[in-house]
């Protein structure tokens, strides 16, 4: 049951454009929360754009990373799981000691991609009127008429975030692969 519901969630979220999801969840989510609050007798609350934006992007990224982690867990050699079971590890201990560490090297490239996508998806929040770098850039450019300067500067900032992320991700990936044969030495 849970598995099917999750499959529906990941399939739908991955088939619909992020922009549409952001609009849908941004308006529907705040509206539903307010309706639920009034239904149980509380005041309507103003949900800040930041909280709504974080929740929406989290919901979208959750679907993508679920698929990445699913693939990573499936990529763990079966023997490792069996060996852990043979040692009499409890499921919780096995998850903590074997499954999660063994899955990391498979999951990190995918998760790193998602991180880079997420940093760029924050720009989409500009469309629902959330004030972040992209929207600020557009307003500044519109006021000063210096479109090129501002958009190139914003692009450079995003690029800088991506490049720094790449460096950090490279370190993390090397750390998660410690003790495994190097990719270059493999045939």
């Amino acid at each position: 049951m849970v598995r099917d519901l999750l499959a529906v969630y990941t399939t739908i979220v991955r088939a619909v454009p992020e922009l549409v999801l952001i609009l849908l969840l941004y308006y529907a989510g705040t509206d539903l929360i307010n309706k639920a609050l009034t239904a149980i007798g509380y005041q309507r609350i103003d949900i800040s754009g930041l909280a709504a934006g974080i929740a929406v992007l989290g919901f979208v990224q959750g679907a993508y990373s679920t698929e990445v982690i699913r693939g990573a867990i499936l990529a763990i050699p079966q023997g490792q799981i069996e060996a852990a079971r043979a040692y009499g590890m409890s499921p919780g201990l096995m998850l903590r000691r074997i499954t999660l560490p063994a899955m990391l090297p498979f999951a990190i490239p995918g998760l790193a991609n998602l991180w880079l996508i997420a940093t760029k998806d924050t720009a989409l929040l500009a469309v629902v009127g959330f004030y972040e770098l992209a929207l600020a850039t557009r307003q500044a450019a519109g006021v000063t008429k210096a479109y090129f300067t501002f958009f190139v500067a914003a692009g450079a900032l995003y690029l800088l975030v991506s490049l720094i992320s790449n460096l950090v991700i490279g370190r993390v990936e090397a750390w998660s692969r410690r003790g495994m044969p190097s990719l270059k030495e493999a045939p």
């Binding site: 720009a123 989409l124 850039t137 519109g142 958009f151 692009g155």
Partner: peptide, 23 residues
Amino acid sequence: CTVIRGTPLLIQLWLLYYGLGSL
């Protein structure tokens, strides 16, 4: 490839439309 993949499509789009379009 690095620049295209490292910056949001929205910024690229706006740079071309508003920036180039205003030039």
